[in-house]
Design a binder for these strands. Structure first.
Lengths: 202, 202, 202, 202
DNA sequence: AATGAATGAGCTTTCATTCAT
DNA sequence: GATGAATGAAAGCTCATTCAT
């Protein structure tokens, strides 16, 4: 990778970091492109070399943050030795939930902005082309290793993700209606249900 | 009540109606004060005779919509004869949930915008000064009639409201993770828990 | 007419005057809306209360200038007593040509910007609704008074206008290939030809 | 001529071709330097190695297009054997008119942009230094061969060119007020007049 | 010579808010 | 009370131009 490419990567990263800070502290609508560029120490026009507009950046940011979240979960799984697919997936779910519980700003940001469409385009296409493996690849591998067949692995993944994000939002932020610890067993039970329902049994 | 006051009331109402339509159809940030005034058939300047700005109107709108929601619940209760406080409150909760289930635009609007602060100021202060009784009065009466004592009736009320709104949001809009009918028993159980936890037993 | 309406009329006029000066001295593309507003002594935003954008103003300006040009021709005709239609039209043509010869900036502006579409919409619709008669009305009256019938009076009018503007442009501005005085006889001959060709003889 | 020079020549040519396409299809003001460079398959910065700015390129383009037009006329003349100067010049004029009639985009471009100043600088200075003879040289030779003397050969040339371009514009594009065939005799008559008027008779 | 990332001035446009009528 | 013309700050975005590589 050339020096110039690295510099570009860093500029893009600066914009993402600056925007995340501003978005979460003062809201997207209250944040101007000028603000973002200023915070990232570059000219306004430079913004447009990296993103189409504020909402494009927001979508990319969601992708980046979600990717990071999931990659950590995959990495955590590497150190474990489960046999059953359900156990692996629930382990990753637990990793994700704990990460969100530790970073409530991230949770609030993702909860407000993550939508099916954005997520799907993020995970199915390998946008993060610089990395040697995508989260989606890891997920597909997991399914293959299990030797089992599923109707629609993409939708299955999304259901799990959506369930986690919506169910955990209030619980983590407000501890209502139950504590996170009390919620987990039921949540994981539901995840097992989703996987079972999607499996094609021969 | 004078004719002039009535006229003013109607203008205010027009603005609220116009704003609700615009807010829910195109979003708050995409709605200008000019749009609202135009839709309400009055001049831009007139807006400022009734509301400080767009967000003031939004807050008043939430109060108005929430008040309406709750008043309907109180009215429904009038035709019933329960003895126990819990049954009365759950009956009202059921009324509210059913209203939201029937009017998903309203649900989406309230879910996006209802916050503790806004709600509290709405219910505790009797902003709706034209009505002879506020929802909060009805609620306080209910508690008094029961002959029981509670630590913090305001927070108790809010907890119930928040629980209903957050728990029902995904369920009503997306039927996830369970159907509304499946959710209700657990929800009502939790409401009973909240009331019990707040009661001061002598 | 109220005082306010008069004031508005004057503001609009100011913008037209300012824009004409700037357009003809430095070109349309080199003139910003900011420039126009500044020259007209008002805020940038005010511009948009009167015109959609720079090109809207330009079109209105062409209409206004062309209308003025034609109205003067009609007014000049009033003091004359010709019997034959051709003589009347040529008299007006001569008035228009002389006006353009006296105001070469106007000629250059109209020649650069006048297009069939703009002109047609200006003359057929009575945009200048404050005036008691439009040029087009005067023209139609002229035809009616003659007692003669024509295939397509609108196109006939346009042909004459287009002929005058294109034929006179170089002649007036550069005296090439002939002087204006030498051109006139041939031009007026051609106008007679156009009228004759459009007449329906019974 | 070195290989490097040829490459440069080609790059320059690419820019001219790209710009002509864009200028005539979407307008000069709507064409950015970025657009031109992209269409010419090179980087934005490269543009500045060949032209000062957009308007410089436009002027060079006019020169190039006009030169091409005239060179073709000169080449056509080579195959002919006229004795009288007037016949030669009118033959070339006819060649030019026919070219413009066949390429209306070119006509529109030249009509909109050709001005005395640009043309003069193009023809008098020999900008096209790569060619072994300029159009102007050919023209001067023609005069010399005739053995006749003229007051101001440059202005005489320009008058003829201007006459052709202005007279033909509407005729070719809109067939108004006469057809090209009907116009030609009078046009060529006028050209003879111009030459006669410029001749110094001893 | 060629590149294209970076710049920032400058444009158009919107809009909350004020205020004379 | 009601109006809507006027304002000007501030937003999004474009683009000619520069310059390090």
């Amino acid at each position: 990778m050339g020096k110039l490419d690295e510099k570009k990567k860093m500029k893009r990263e600066s914009l993402l970091v600056a925007a995340f800070t501003l978005f979460t502290s003062q809201g997207i609508n209250e944040t101007s492109i000028s603000d973002i560029a200023k915070k990232a120490n570059m000219a306004k026009g430079t913004f447009y070399l990296y993103f189409k507009d504020k909402f494009d950046l927001r979508d990319k940011l969601i992708v980046a943050k979600a990717t990071q979240l999931f990659r950590k979960a995959v990495d955590d799984l590497d150190g474990q030795s489960f046999d059953v697919l359900e156990d692996k997936i629930i382990f990753m779910a637990d990793s994700i939930i704990n990460q969100l519980n530790d970073d409530k700003i991230l949770l609030r940001f993702l909860a407000k902005n993550l939508s099916w469409g954005v997520f799907q385009s993020a995970m199915v296409m390998e946008i993060e082309s610089d990395s040697d493996y995508s989260f989606y690849d890891a997920y597909v591998n997991l399914l293959k290793e299990s030797g089992r067949k599923f109707c629609n692995p993409e939708i299955m993944l999304f259901l799990i993700v959506e369930l986690i994000s919506s169910a955990c939002h209030d619980v983590i932020l407000y501890q209502e209606p139950v504590t996170l610890e009390d919620l987990k067993p039921e949540l994981y039970g539901t995840i097992r249900d989703i996987i079972r329902r999607q499996e094609i049994r021969s």
